[in-house]
Amino acid sequence: MPRELTIGTLIESEDAAPAQVLAAKLNRHTFWCGQSGSGKTYALGVLLEQVLLHTRLPLVILDPNSDFARLGEVRDDAPADVAAALRDRDIRVFRSGDPDRPLRARLLGMPLRSRAAILGIDPVVDAELYNEMLHLEAELGGIEQGRLIGYLRAQDSELRQRLATRLENLGMAEWALWAWGERDVTQDIDEGPDATIVDLGRFDTQAEFRAAALAVLDHLWAHREERRPRLIVIDEAHNLCSPEPADAVQALLTERIVQIAAEGRKFGLWLLLSTQRPSKVHPNALSQCDNLALMRMSSLRDLDELADVFGYAPESLVQRSPAFAQGQALFAGGFVDQPGLVQMGSRLTQEGGIDVPVPLR
């Protein structure tokens, strides 16, 4: 297998030399950014296809807009040998309501802090309720899946009645997300398929969306000591790793991603954070990224921040970003031999979230 992953051509080379990413250096966190219309998602798909073709590195993709849901569908114009190789890969797509692979998580398998945050229970402000959840921990194994509210209602305890009421009022027990004894997505992740695509775009509420992402990240972190290499791709990362979290669940998501950014490398947990707006991603996650892919970006504030954080990217090249055509990018950092401008190559698989065209008469 090649050491280099070919992703396109070098723009300023005399003979259209191939642009390549060093596969071995994906064991560093990567930041991928570009404004809407820059070709960011398409270009990221090009890289992920090469990872699938030429490495055994499992992908776990948190996909909020269903952009990578068709990563397993090969284009008709793909070379026959490449198409055969991609079709041979184990790519599993999970989405809410899917009859074959529904996206489910196990509520009672999540850490106490995460369950409390989903319920809106603060360990200080709601000290009594949180403490009751703490005491409930020892009983979780004996609660029949899907019967949590009934179990709480059957108890002669005011606090447990309040917990049941909160569950009912929030409608949490009725979420399609919960496995309630059925297979959940973390079991598939543990089997180590070539790609696990967690399609978050089918949920009706942000609360369910965030809870699903938190369940996956909590599980990966809880099993970090297994030291099983994984590339964790978080598209639209500003939704999950904000410097100003909107609620307790988003705060936990940000905390977990920052934790993986700071400590995950030694456990084989490597992040690829993709976003349109670097300023909307927590700086403690941003600063841990040793690889940069920058596409067109017009915000001078964002470009100044990128030049400051990613000192290994030549400022003269960063400042050219507003003039990039669609599909052009600056690659810098450990995963390339030297910083360079790249024209991304063509996709081999179908795009999941193509733009809606303007209807013409």
Rank of each mutant, 00 (worst) to 15 (best):
M1H: 12
P2D: 13
R3A: 14
A24S: 15
C33T: 15
S36R: 07
L44V: 01
P58E: 02
I61S: 07
V74H: 00
A85H: 06
G97Q: 00
R104D: 06
A105Q: 11
A105Y: 11
S114D: 03
I118N: 03
L119F: 02
V124R: 10
V124A: 08
V124I: 14
A127R: 12
Y130V: 07
E132R: 13
H135C: 08
A138L: 09
E144W: 04
D156L: 07
S157H: 03
E158L: 14
L159K: 12
R162N: 13
R166K: 14
L170S: 11
A173N: 13
R183D: 11
T186M: 06
D188G: 05
D188T: 15
E191Y: 04
V198N: 03
L200K: 06
A211M: 09
A212Y: 05
A212R: 03
L214A: 12
E226Y: 10
R228G: 04
L231S: 07
I232P: 08
D235T: 02
H238P: 01
N239H: 12
V249G: 03
T254D: 07
R256D: 05
A293S: 10
S299E: 09
D308I: 02
A313V: 12
E315V: 15
S316V: 12
A325V: 04
D337A: 13
D337W: 05
D337S: 14
G340W: 05
L341M: 11
S346E: 15
T349Q: 00
E351S: 02
